[in-house]
């Protein structure tokens, strides 16, 4: 097999194009690939359709930076602080430019990805009945359940096939084999639905490590187009077993981005004026070191022997 290892700059330049639909954060609050969000801003990508159920301030940063044309999601804001100021400015005042919202709930977005993942023409859903999400998103349709004679309305959710899913994992081999642990959110549906997967890994390991526990693999290695080794790719969101959440960082962002000028100032300091993610980590310094999970709470090994 051929190594798929590239740098973060190469991966974003080669695999994320202007106008692409990109899954950036599939696990809701943890495991959000901020390193790619920042690199998208540094490479001045535009017109993206960001697919993310929640993704905390990652979506807010990309909107404020002008990279986003469409948000396909269920929630955009700052989870521990509340509202996202850039999202509000874009939706209320078209600053820096108008953004289209393809409104979903977490479940309906997951079902859209599920339909694409399994090649289904639609996924049937009940949870949007009566909600204005149903009427504000023209992609949905409602029919009566054709398998019953009684009145039983169901929502049809069309499949959603992202151009690329950016998925952080704890460890990967050079060929796209991955181990992920923690809550999975919509990760597996996003991975299986997408045209290709860009993997960010905290550590590159030998393929034997991946093969030692194939149950910890959530998607096929051949779907992976690039493997990027990058430390703390999910900061300020947590990475299960390795990095805690930097809640103070979210708080400071909330305060500093209340005005457009404040946001641009923040964006220069933390993204545009830094050459790469390693520089970002160096700038965090002790603040990042303090977030490294120190204790061990190891799972018990499982046996896959065949004789």
């Amino acid at each position: 097999m051929i190594s798929k290892v590239v740098t973060l700059q190469q991966a974003v330049a080669e695999h994320i194009h202007n106008g692409d639909s990109v899954v950036l954060g599939a696990c809701l609050e943890p495991m959000i690939p901020f390193a790619v969000s920042y690199e998208i801003v540094r490479q001045h990508k535009t017109g993206l359709n960001i697919i993310a159920p929640i993704s905390d301030i990652s979506s807010d940063i990309l909107i404020g930076a002008g990279a986003v044309n469409t948000i396909t999601g269920a929630w955009v804001g700052n989870v521990s602080e509340g509202l996202g100021h850039n999202y509000r400015r874009a939706m209320e005042q078209n600053i820096p430019h108008p953004v289209t919202l393809v409104d979903h709930s977490n479940f309906s977005l997951g079902m859209a990805l599920l339909a694409a993942a399994y090649g289904m023409p639609f996924a049937p859903n009940k949870s949007l009945l009566g909600s204005d999400i149903l009427t504000s998103n023209p992609q949905f349709d409602v029919i009566n359940n054709p398998l019953t004679d009684t009145e039983d309305p169901i929502v049809l959710i069309p499949p959603l096939t992202p151009d690329v899913a950016v998925l952080p994992v704890q460890r990967a081999d050079r060929y796209g084999g991955t181990h992920f642990w923690g809550n999975t959110g919509l990760l597996q549906e996003a991975a299986l639905a997408s045209q290709k997967i860009l993997v960010l890994t905290e550590e590159i390991v030998d393929s034997a490590v991946i093969r030692s526990d194939p149950n910890r693999v959530l998607f096929a290695d051949f779907q992976v187009c690039a493997v990027v080794e990058v430390q703390a790719a999910t900061h300020p969101s947590p990475m299960t077993g390795i990095w805690q959440r930097d809640t103070a960082f979210f708080g400071a962002y909330h305060q500093r981005t209340r005005t457009r000028e404040g946001f641009l100032d923040w964006l220069h300091e933390w993204v545009l004026d830094l050459p790469d993610h390693a520089a970002y980590c160096r700038k965090l310094g002790q603040q990042l070191d303090d977030l490294r999970i120190q204790q061990q709470h190891l799972s018990v090994p499982v046996n896959f022997a065949d004789q």
């Binding site: 955009v76 804001g77 509202l83 996202g84 409104d103 709930s105 909600s131």
Partner: peptide, 8 residues
Amino acid sequence: PGSGGAAD
């Protein structure tokens, strides 16, 4: 911010 999972 929107629904998240609240609608469901």
